[in-house]
Amino acid sequence: MDELQTFVKMLAEKHGNRRESLLPMLQALAERYRHVSGEAMAEVARELDLSTAEVYGTATFYSFLDTTRRGKYIIRICKTIVCDMHGKNQIVKTLEEQLKIKVGETTHNHKFSLLETNCLGWCHKGPAMLINDEVYSDLTPEKICQIIADYRNR
């Protein structure tokens, strides 16, 4: 068995091989492999006795279940109105300059992906962003440079 198969088997054991386990399994796959690949979907489908199309349909519904490979650190910057009002564009510009990629892209070394997302629930401290599960709020271009420098060293 290859590594992916073993991992999917382990997930099915942990969550149970029922349809209800699909989301937690896809979430775990996305976290480990930085996306849910076609092979991963097929493997999950086999394990849960679903059609691959069903798995694909479910996976692609959720914006956090990326189906293209992302970097180790996924930056999701809020583009909803309050963050937008408070300088989100400037933050995106700084991030693009720092990482030398555009929104939607991943750095060559697969360390960072830069994405936009909808309201993160930190509007009172906007602009806000997530790096994986961590929240960063009250962002300024200076703060961004600091944060990215920290992550570069991780």
Binding site: T80, V82, C119, C123, H124
Partner: peptide
Amino acid sequence: DEGEPGTFKDR
């Protein structure tokens, strides 16, 4: 789920 833009109280 608190997804409504401008809502952050449940968190």
